[in-house]
């Protein structure tokens, strides 16, 4: 069975390149270019994992999307990998520690992340789900 990944990113090239990559690795890929469409796609497609860009139209829009995912009973357990440009996002005061209960994402990955890195994280998270 192939895993389904949802990519939410406003950068058309990032979506395309990740789509091409994960498709070639046997994943089913769906994507959205903004948060609103992303949430719709998430509810519709029920992916196994979401790759989310931290900043879309404005600073921290990705966090807002993550919060909304976590607030939705239907999809709140979907793992989220968040792509960031800087380690510490200003104004969010997020710590990446696993004990941080309200932290809405499972993993941060700093750009530019190579395909190998991203794939590694995706597989790691999907493996841990199986157990």
């Amino acid at each position: 069975m192939s895993y389904k990944i949802l990519i939410i990113d406003d950068d058309v090239d990032l979506v395309e390149m990740n789509r091409a990559f994960f498709t070639s690795k046997g994943f089913t890929v769906c994507y959205a270019y903004n948060g609103e469409d992303g949430l719709k796609a998430l509810r519709r497609e029920k992916p196994d994992l979401v790759i989310l860009d931290v900043m879309m139209t404005e600073v921290g829009e990705g966090f807002e999307v993550a919060r909304q995912i976590r607030a939705d009973e239907q999809v709140k357990n979907t793992p989220i990998i968040m792509l960031t440009s800087v380690n510490q996002e200003h104004g969010f005061n997020l710590t990446i520690g696993p004990d941080d209960t309200w932290n809405p994402v499972d993993c941060f990955l700093e750009k530019p992340a190579s395909h190998t890195q991203l794939l590694g994280k995706v597989e790691e998270i999907l493996q841990s789900l199986k157990r």
């Binding site: 950068d11 440009s85 996002e89 530019p112 190579s114 395909h115």
Partner: peptide, 17 residues
């Protein structure tokens, strides 16, 4: 931060492609 994002996004795309 925003500049970093704007610089890293195209770089990520180029690297990925």
């Amino acid at each position: 931060d925003m500049a970093a994002h704007e610089l890293k996004s195209p770089l990520t795309a180029v690297q990925g492609y």
